[in-house]
């Protein structure tokens, strides 16, 4: 076997020999199950009339918003909410090398540092895709079950649904590689985690919301990573609540995400990866 395939195999072994990956996968599954199941039941119930809108306080007795095409929105939760998990996995896997000083044995076994970083990127791309499947098991698996229970067609025979599944897995895979990029850019594990959580849960949603108010900023807002990801997946609750917000085409969204990953990883290579290991 050549050096690069061996490096990829070693990175896979690193990822699977600690508990982190399945703990994160488990939390991802639980979280998305709750969201997709809960909201699937709520909107499914409203749509099918099983829940009487006038009895609830929400919407001031106006009734729920008319949602056509509910299933893709429920399914997209796996990425629109779950994307933080592959980023975290990538960032933890990368910053852990600095934190536990495992860069030393890593670079002794394979002194081609660029190759090691490339192998890590490939590995986290696949791991992100696996997280995409885990997220879909919750959003599509549980979501479809709940919606059918309320008589909403889960559109499982629709080819558009399966195209969304494919794009969602690609988006999650790209998020895994963005995590690697962030990890080399900010090798401090604590700082990396804080940035992931603060940016994905607070800063970006706020920026996306704020950018919608003028046309010029809306043009920029669609290039934010979360917005690009939603564009790639093709549906999200966030875009639903901002019908005026312009979005990218799915393939443009994918390219924007890829650009984030490449820029962060190459930047991080120079910031930390090729530096002295002391």
């Amino acid at each position: 076997m050549n050096r690069f395939p061996r490096a990829v195999a070693a990175e896979f072994a690193k990822l699977t020999t600690t508990r982190m990956w399945w703990i994160l996968a488990l939390v991802l599954f639980g979280y998305i199950t709750l969201l997709a199941g809960g909201l699937g039941a709520l909107f499914g119930g409203l749509q099918s009339g099983a829940i009487d809108p006038s009895s609830g306080g929400a919407g001031g007795g106006q009734g729920g918003p008319p949602i056509d095409n509910l299933p893709p929105l429920i399914y997209s939760f796996a990425a629109s909410v779950g994307y933080v998990f592959p980023v975290l996995l990538g960032a933890l896997a990368t910053t852990g090398e600095f934190r536990h000083q495992t860069l030393t044995p890593t670079f002794l076994a394979n002194p081609k540092r660029g190759g090691v970083l490339g192998a890590k990127t490939v590995t986290l791309f696949v791991a992100g895709a696996v997280f995409g499947v885990v997220g879909l098991a919750a959003s599509l698996g549980i979501g479809a079950l709940v919606m059918s229970a309320f008589g909403v067609d889960p559109l499982l025979g629709d080819s558009e649904t399966w195209a969304l599944v494919g794009r969602l897995i690609l988006a999650m895979a790209l998020w895994g590689t963005i995590g690697v990029g962030l990890g080399v850019l900010v090798p401090s594990q604590v700082a990396s985690i804080v940035i992931v959580l603060a940016f994905t849960q607070f800063v970006e949603p706020l920026l996306r919301f704020a950018s919608m108010f003028t046309e010029a900023t809306a043009g920029m807002g669609k290039f934010l990573p979360g917005a690009a990801s939603d564009a790639l997946v093709g549906a999200s609750f966030f875009t639903l609540t901002s019908p005026t917000g312009s979005t990218l085409d799915w393939w443009q969204g994918g390219l924007v995400l890829l650009a984030y990953a490449i820029v962060a990883t190459i930047g991080g290579y120079f910031v930390s990866w090729k530096r002295d290991v002391t």
Partner: peptide
């Protein structure tokens, strides 16, 4: 731990 580097070094 050792297995990882054995893989990397072939």
């Amino acid at each position: 731990h050792l297995g990882i580097y054995a893989i990397a070094a072939g």
